[in-house]
């Protein structure tokens, strides 16, 4: 759906070349910012660039990448999900309690929560509600449920999940393999299949799609269900790493996920999203916010502000480049 309308043909070839260059730059930007952050880390702390270092620095980026993919599906349909963070926390609490003690019940609860997500999609479409309001409301519901399940921090991740997340493959650290896998699977599903085109089209030009006979209700339900699915995966991955849960564990993911999608070359409207970019964006944010900051030795009073400044710089570069495209 990113194909430009017919008028492009009327413009001169130099104009077209400039647009193509800008688009290429936009595609490369997420990767470039990731490389830049990695270079900075390598310069500040060479010890971090190793198998051990990458395993440590990137393993917490995996749940962020999954949450970012979840958010990307919602954004692909021109909506915004403000509940993904608390949803991840809720999934975490279920994973550390039910999924370990009664795997069947736990799996049913998680499946049920994906259904709730699908129903939210239907509700938002049928009643024409703003998704921000609905998901903001749901964020309190998920948080409340999480506190109900786990009034105080605790629980334990199922053993199979622990051993999966602690998996140490030869040569390439596990988080890198996981990131490649997530990006490849979602890229294929959303960018290379025909229904993936329809899904993105529901954000690009909904009217045209419905006139062509596609059900917009179905696309919205599918997009939200996919968001729910990846939210569940994110929560489980997070608990696999932290080994135990906390009702507030995922709260920060809502904004990180949105920032990851945008940094990865996505747009809030128009169905323009990039799964590979989103994964890279999530990795960049995770690296820029934590390891880079820790290695820079900034006085404690300034650390919080410096974290914000790094995020703004990274995102501002993205905005500058997409402006050249217009």
């Amino acid at each position: 759906m990113t194909a430009a309308p017919a008028e492009t043909g009327l413009k001169g070839s130099s104009e077209r070349g400039r647009l193509a260059r800008a688009r290429l730059l936009r595609g490369l930007l997420p990767a470039m910012s990731l490389v830049l952050v990695l270079l900075a880390i390598a310069w500040l702390n060479p010890r971090a660039i190793s198998y051990f270092g990458f395993s440590l620095m990137l393993n917490l980026a995996i749940p962020i990448a999954l949450a970012t993919i979840a958010q990307m599906f919602v954004i692909a349909g021109n909506e915004l999900d403000l509940s993904i963070g608390t949803f991840v926390g809720f999934v975490g609490c279920v994973t550390a309690t039910w999924l370990k003690d009664a795997p069947l019940v736990g799996a049913l609860i998680l499946l049920g929560s994906i259904c709730v997500y699908a129903l939210l999609g239907a509700l938002i479409y049928l009643r024409n509600l703003p998704s921000i309001v609905v998901t903001l409301g749901m964020s309190f519901a998920w948080q409340g449920l999480a506190i109900l399940i786990l009034p105080k921090p605790g629980g334990k991740a199922p053993d199979w999940l622990l051993s999966l997340m602690a998996f140490k493959p030869p040569f390439i650290p596990f988080p890198i393999i996981a990131a490649l896998l997530i990006a490849a699977v979602v890229h294929f599903g959303l960018m290379r299949t025909s229904y993936g085109v329809i899904l993105r089209g529901s954000g690009g030009n909904a009217a045209a799609l419905s006139r062509a006979g596609w059900s917009l209700l179905k696309t919205k339900v599918v997009l939200f269900a996919l968001a729910g699915l990846f939210g569940v995966l994110s929560g489980m991955a997070l608990i696999g790493i932290t080994t135990s849960a906390d009702a507030n564990i995922g709260n920060g993911y809502t904004l990180l996920a949105i920032a990851g999608v945008i940094l990865g070359g996505g747009e809030f409207v128009g169905g323009r999203v990039s799964p590979i970019g989103a994964v890279i964006g999530a990795l960049t944010l995770a690296l820029a916010a934590s390891p880079l900051l820790t290695f820079m030795h900034i006085p404690p009073d300034w650390q919080v502000a410096a974290n914000g400044a790094i995020l703004i710089i990274v995102l501002a570069a993205r905005v500058l480049i997409s402006r050249r495209e217009r």
Binding site: L60, N248, A289, L293, Q303, V304, G308
Partner: peptide, 12 residues
């Protein structure tokens, strides 16, 4: 000091 009160940030 971490920028937010979140667990994953501190774990990282």
């Amino acid at each position: 000091t971490t920028a937010d009160k979140e667990v994953p940030t501190q774990a990282a």
